[in-house]
């Protein structure tokens, strides 16, 4: 058991290191330095600037500086705005975390409820409706969904205000972010619930006269949850990458939209820092969901 946890931790650390390495060296492979503009600066100024950012050192040394700086929480400054990147991440991640956190919880709760209902009322009208809509939502790219929601409910019907400094309406962005994972979780819960409901121990529980609610909640749902736990890692990954799109469409100044503007502006330090930050979050989420999965499922052995 401890061996497994250690092994997973080791893998996570190696992964994070590889991500940082890939990020650093790919960004370094881009031809042209940040101070080589069309209007070349004075050579003396350029040399000073390069010394300030350690650009005069060989690449491995630069990598070492980047690593040590990063552990102190210093990602450098944005090429575009000149602001400290860590500060930007701190400020914008608060919004993204709120948006993503609520979306993840909503997707999980709604998906579990709808999936269980669909499984219990198999082949009923309700089941058909749920499966129809979830199949549909799984086939719509997030930015199309977000744009359509914005168009219909914000601009045409004006039920919700457009995101601005004064009005923060989280409802539509959360909906746009949560519908895809919710549909996925619904389908996952349904199939795993159907699987569990066909097991012998459910028949035993019913035949000894247990109330149906008790059978469902105590025996079926708890076992049906196990495959859903494995989806936690991908869920966090989806929410984080989905927020890039949703935040940009709804013009929310979260980390996702900062990342997208970083890409369009070719603001390499910003892209690097955000990639590393989001990647580490995803690796941690996968690690946690894997560990919970192993702890919860009695059928898994630790080898």
């Amino acid at each position: 058991m401890w061996k497994y946890i250690l092994k997973r931790f080791g893998l996570a650390i190696v992964t994070v290191f590889i991500i940082i390495t890939i990020t650093f060296f790919t960004m370094n492979a881009i031809p042209g330095g940040p101070f080589e503009k069309e209007k070349a600066p004075d050579p003396a100024v350029k040399a000073l600037l390069e010394a300030r950012f350690h650009l005069d050192k060989p690449v491995p040394v630069q990598f070492w500086y980047y690593l040590t700086d990063m552990f102190r929480g210093d990602f450098g400054i944005s090429l575009k705005t000149g602001r400290n990147i860590m500060q930007t991440i701190n400020e914008s991640f608060a919004i993204s975390a709120k948006l993503g956190g609520i979306a993840a919880l909503a997707a999980l709760a709604a998906g579990l409820v709808l999936g269980s209902i669909a499984a219990i009322m198999r082949n009923g009208v309700f089941d058909r409706v749920i499966i129809f809509f979830t199949t549909l939502f799984v086939s719509v790219p997030s930015f199309v969904l977000a744009t359509l929601l914005l168009l219909v409910f914000c601009l045409k019907l004006a039920w919700f205000p457009v995101w601005s400094a004064e009005s923060h309406s989280y409802f539509l962005p959360i909906l746009a972010l949560a519908l895809y994972p919710m549909s996925y979780i619904t389908r996952l819960t349904k199939s795993s619930m159907l699987d569990v409901l066909g097991q012998d121990y459910i028949r035993t529980a019913r035949s000894k006269g247990l109330a149906e609610t008790k059978v469902i909640f105590k025996h079926a749902l708890r076992n049906a949850l196990i495959p859903v736990i494995t989806y936690m890692g991908p869920l966090v990954a989806y929410i984080l990458t989905g927020s890039l799109v949703v935040e940009t469409v709804f013009t929310i100044g979260g980390l996702g939209s900062k990342f997208v503007t970083g890409i369009t502006n070719r603001d390499y330090p910003m892209v690097m820092a955000t990639t590393i930050f989001l990647s580490v979050l995803m690796v941690v989420a996968t690690l946690i969901s894997d560990l919970i999965y192993k702890l919860v499922d009695p059928k898994i052995s630790f080898d």
Binding site: V271, T275, S279, M282
Partner: peptide, 13 residues
């Protein structure tokens, strides 16, 4: 375990 979409963005950039 690499976040594929982020890596795609990074490499495309």
């Amino acid at each position: 375990s690499l976040p594929d979409l982020l890596m795609i963005i990074l490499l495309s950039v």
